[in-house]
Design a binder for these strands. Sequence first.
DNA 1: TGTTTGACCGGTC
DNA 2: CGACCGGCCAAAC
Length: 109
Amino acid sequence: MDYTFFDNVYEVVKLIPKGRVSAYGAIARYLGAAKSARAVGYALNQCASMPDVPAHRVVNRLGMLTGKHHFATPTAMQAALEAEGVEVKDDQVQQFDKLFWDPSKELEM
DNA sequence: TGTTTGACCGGTC
DNA sequence: CGACCGGCCAAAC
């Protein structure tokens, strides 16, 4: 089938609950490719044109808004997160440890 | 068709 | 403690 790792990323990202955030590596690991976090990042790059995929809920493992620069505006990502109740300061998600949504844990495989 | 890069991560020097 | 390197997947040149 034409189904790919790429599409899998979108599925997981779309499953991220509102007010929660996830990490590239966490998604990659859930997909069975822990070292493919880069591919996840690239997938989200494509998802910039995909309104169905809340890429703003995906940050790096440090909770840093590394990809904010790829949004329509550098503040779009932070604004979107804050709109969902996620506190963001200095391109960094506050209480990231609590808001972190790990698919491999939440979805229990 | 081969090389380079990219919104990353982990380990090593 | 800071910087560098390798690895995975997919797209762009």
